Amino acid sequence: MYSDADTAALYDLLNPWDGTRHYSDAFYNGLVMRADAALDVGCGTGVMLHQARARGHAGRLVGLDPSAAMLDRARRRADVEWVHGVAADASP
């Protein structure tokens, strides 16, 4: 049996974020890097926002996800805002 933390770790292995291999990842990387701020709804483990910050994004980055286990992994980076919840409940 897998714990939620195990499932979150497995998610990263099965769903790598790689703009050099996946056109859609490259597309979103470009959008995020050109924006002053970005909200990633359903951010999962936060890989896209982690990479944006590592590539030099200096603006506000916010990840929103309903899974506490996914956000626990995302919070490895403290320079991104992580919000537990769903988009319908979010406020500006």
Rank of each mutant, 00 (worst) to 15 (best):
S91H: 12
R76E: 11
A87L: 13
G19Y: 02
M1R: 04
F27V: 05
S3F: 02
A26F: 10
H57R: 03
V62I: 15
V83K: 06
H22A: 05
D65I: 09
A26M: 12
A5V: 12
T45D: 07
W17A: 00
Y2W: 13
S3D: 15
N29K: 00
A52L: 04
A74P: 01
V86G: 13
H22T: 07
R60I: 13
D12Y: 08
S67L: 06
V41C: 15
A54I: 09
G59N: 08
A90S: 06
G19W: 09
R77C: 10
G56Y: 09
T20H: 11
L10H: 13
S3H: 02
A87D: 01
A69V: 01
A52V: 02
D25R: 04
N29P: 01
Y11N: 03
T7D: 00
G42D: 07
Y23G: 06
R55V: 03
G56P: 09
A38K: 02
A74H: 06
L64E: 04
M33Y: 00
V80E: 05
A74S: 03
N29G: 02
G42Q: 10
S91Y: 06
R34L: 06
D89C: 07
W17M: 00
D25F: 05
D25T: 09
L14Y: 01
Y23H: 14
N15F: 12
